[in-house]
């Protein structure tokens, strides 16, 4: 039987959740015995080459590209997991959610104290994804099957959950592993 396939991505996140993933330390050797990685920053595969079993999503959706990738993950992965506060509730990027986008862009590109932008141009290259009105939690865009809270989620939590999903067994997570900070 072929190994289960995992894909991961970081949307509007800081890569901290992926760092915490690497904090499973030497268990990563067990993990690569158990699974195969597809699209992920971990192996640097940029596009899906096959359907996957588990997709881990770090970060919420702050622009059109994030939405595009998230929808692609939903299509390609049987089980989709929000990992980290940003994927679950927008996290720190969502702190802009009660400020109009126009004001955010003006602060960043026009009126910020260290900004030099004489022509007053806002980034408008058509290659660039368009910033959304607010940052959206992943489960408000597509159906997410599981949520792993934490900033970042504890490495042990990631390991326990992945392990259980791969082996398809029930788990009873210890209290200390589920934290929002």
């Amino acid at each position: 039987m072929s190994k289960p396939v995992i894909a991961t991505t970081s949307l509007a996140g800081c890569f901290g959740c992926h760092m915490s993933f690497l904090d499973i330390d030497e268990r990563i050797l067990d993990l690569i015995e158990l699974v195969e990685f597809n699209k992920s920053p971990i192996d640097d595969i940029k596009s899906f080459t096959k359907d996957c079993d588990i997709g881990l999503i770090e970060g919420g959706c702050c622009n059109t590209e994030n939405i595009h990738i998230l929808k692609e993950f939903r299509k390609k992965c049987k089980i989709l997991v929000s990992f980290g506060e940003c994927a679950i509730m927008g996290g720190l990027p969502a702190m802009r959610n009660d400020i109009p986008v126009k004001e955010c862009l003006a602060e960043a590109y026009l009126s910020g104290p260290s900004t030099v932008n004489e022509e007053g141009i806002l980034p408008n290259d058509e290659e660039l994804p368009i910033i959304l009105d607010k940052v959206y939690p992943c489960h408000e865009i597509v159906k997410m099957d599981y949520h792993l809270p934490g900033c970042p989620p504890r490495a042990d939590l990631i390991w326990e959950v992945l392990h259980a999903l791969i082996l398809d067994v029930d788990i009873d997570l210890p209290y200390e592993l589920i934290k929002y900070d």
Partner: peptide, 18 residues
């Protein structure tokens, strides 16, 4: 929330201005 094992809320976030 920890005691009740809440992993994500069932309601949409309001992001009210405060």
């Amino acid at each position: 929330a920890y005691r009740f094992g809440i992993m994500a809320p069932r309601f949409p976030y309001q992001f009210n201005e405060r």
